[in-house]
Design a protein around this nucleic acid. Structure first.
Lengths: 236, 236
DNA sequence: ACCTGAACACCGTTCAAGT
DNA sequence: ACCTGAACACCGTTCAAGT
């Protein structure tokens, strides 16, 4: 009496020897953990539901027990990183503290390129409140403390957050990637100097600042903070 | 004598009655034109090589005669918009002209959301020199004219360009989309005021500035320009 | 040369089914 | 409930073939 497995059936090629995954082996948290790691390691375009499932050692459809789909998974990953973030407390005058808070957000994003891209490229109408809620509240408080009126505080925050996102995006796409900087260099060198005299003249300085992302960020941040200190509405 | 079309052959369902496209009906320029229109109308995620080909009334593979693939088509479309751009000439002091040049770039991008997204999301190591070469050269010239030294000019340009891109991205994703603003509003209203006191307090001002994208951009721009005027290195 | 459809290797997701 | 593979409707792109 031949047992079932000894029968010479032509088995279809199974890509990975994986029996049914044990019942409690998955959870939303675990999925998000692996997703964030995968996205930051292999890049956002290499990420897929199928690749994530394989990384977890489960069938693709197992993910759909925990998330409605890819978009919901993305939002959950992004929100977890942003909501868990608390800006480091610092000492000093209001503008020194504000400076530190901005730098912390900047570092958060450059350290988590996938989350930044998710934030910037998200196509859903849903949007996280803003950069990171706790940080936003803190910065608004510091701006008021600095003597800005209500409208100036809101607008100053908007300015700082837009500049921070713009800077971090440039850094993860160019400054921190040697091949991209090299491409930038050769593109500038190839421009006809007679058409772009100032650009050709300042090329060395432009390249130097491109290579130093964080320094460039601090420079612009200080520029904005200087502008804030000279605001006519300020009465401190 | 039955003509060919009267023969009762069981024809496979042809999606569109399209005979072979005439020989010279396509060109790189025409393809780019349609691509830009499609991307701005239907959104970047709705765009595909297959949809573009259908829009042009040709087979999908006809596009590959003119472009190596989707990425090359994207780059060509982006480069055409940016390279063709010349900043409007304006009058006034160096900082007034600088202000006008920044606003023109800002308007270029908010008016062409697909190009901005292409610029921001491009994954290729190749990157256009920067925002728009002619504009970059002009702004660098104005900064030097304003008395900034070489390094400050390069860094100031970097600051202005990062802020401009960050602002334009925020505008096309939130400010100019009523559903997104509404989502933002309800998210803020849902936050516990005891955890985010400043945010809850300033909610009206924050929402007002969110609704006014261009105004918010001008505010931040003026803040940066004020910072530039107070730069210690300036000797004018 | 320019344009074509069929085919391939990917996606995300629906569905009916297994445990 | 939790997890599965098959199937569907999409992609971008390769290829051999038509004109």
């Amino acid at each position: 009496m031949p047992s079932e497995q000894s029968v010479a059936t032509v088995a279809p090629p199974r890509p990975a020897r994986r029996s049914r995954a044990p019942r409690g082996s998955l959870s939303a948290e675990l999925i998000i953990d692996h997703a964030l790691r995968l996205m930051d390691e292999k890049g956002l375009e290499a990420f897929s539901m199928r690749a994530l499932a394989e990384d977890l050692g489960v069938g693709t459809m197992a993910l759909y027990t925990y998330f409605r789909g890819k978009d919901e998974l993305f939002r959950a990953a992004r929100d977890r990183v942003l909501a868990a973030y608390t800006p480091p407390s610092t000492e000093g005058s209001w503008d020194q503290q504000l400076r530190a808070a901005c730098l912390a957000v900047h570092d958060l994003f450059t350290g988590r390129p996938a989350v930044l891209r998710l934030l910037a490229e998200s196509t859903a109408q849903d949007d996280f409140v803003d950069v990171a809620t706790a940080s936003m509240d803190r910065m608004l408080g510091l701006l008021c403390e600095g003597g800005l009126n209500r409208e100036d505080a809101a607008r100053a925050y908007g300015t700082l957050s837009r500049f921070t996102i713009g800077s971090a995006l440039r850094e993860i796409r160019v400054c921190s990637r040697p091949e991209a900087v090299e491409m930038f260099r050769s593109r500038i060198a190839a421009l006809p100097p007679e058409h772009y005299p100032h650009l050709a003249d300042l090329a060395p300085e432009i390249l130097a600042t491109t290579e130093d992302g964080p320094g460039q960020y601090e420079y612009g941040l200080d520029l904005i903070l200087a502008g804030l200190r000279h605001l006519p509405s300020r009465c401190t």
